[in-house]
Amino acid sequence: MLLSPPHKPLTNGSEGTSVTKRGPAPADGRPWPWLVPAVAILAVFYAVPVLDVFRLAFSDATLIRPPTSWTAAPIRALLGNPALPEVLVTTFVFTAVNVVALQAFGLAIALTLVRGEARGLRGMTTFRTLVLAAWVVPGIANGLIWQMLFDEAPYGTLNSLLGFVGIGPVAWLSDPGMALVSAVIANLWQGTAFSMIVFYAARKAIDPVIYEVAALDGASPWRTFRSITLPLLRTAIAVNTVLVAVQTLNTFDSILALTGGGPGRATEVLALFTFNTVFYNLDLAGGSVLALIMFAVAMALATVIHGWLGRTA
């Protein structure tokens, strides 16, 4: 069912020049003069720093010494670094679990909110505000908050609560496996709100008539979700997946405060590894190579995810 006709510009017969009902388009077939200012600003603020990272990645620069020669040594050194595979695996697990869980929790909360509002339940605004409150907490503060909650001392908050119901104590931060789980929990607590906002807006944009028709046809809630809600949220899911994946890939401040990347390298993700390479090792060239890897991974993720989920958008 086509709910509204697509907007289609009229042409005046001369190729490349479009005419709307209000007259010729502003660019009038010559878009470049209009695009140059925007492109120039983007180039200055985005492309130049990225190009500078490229330049440093092929140099011998350290944090205390400017480049003196051009070399591929930083790339070779990084590829030969035995820590890199472990860091990449940790980053992949941290990002993959977060992306899936953030979508699931964000969608669940958004649908709960919409349903609650549709039924006129009180407290929905408060609920939404509470979820959003976690989002505005800075990453470092988020790490410190969860560090206190996960404290494994005999008087630690979560372990004390679990103790009341006969569970635990749990080695939240001292066990390498659990430490990664704890880092994921802290990130989920903070990041779910963003997914919730995206899905809440997208769900509110779906025409309620469609749900009324589904109800008249006797569709079950699950069938309605599977056949109406999910397909119509496809674009939102694609966009949100890309944004959340890139955000998670760049996460390092909350982990720095929560575990510092430890025990050992158990929670050292690529962004934190980059930070340590530059500020512990003073290796600016090596850090630039890592930044390029993050850039490439983020671009690949965006391309693949958007191409996969957003192909019919």
Binding site: E152, A171, S174, D175, A179, G262
Partner: peptide
């Protein structure tokens, strides 16, 4: 075991 999670003297 929790000593591997201690990252400040305040603990």
């Amino acid at each position: 075991q929790r000593v591997t999670s201690i990252t400040n003297y305040d603990a």
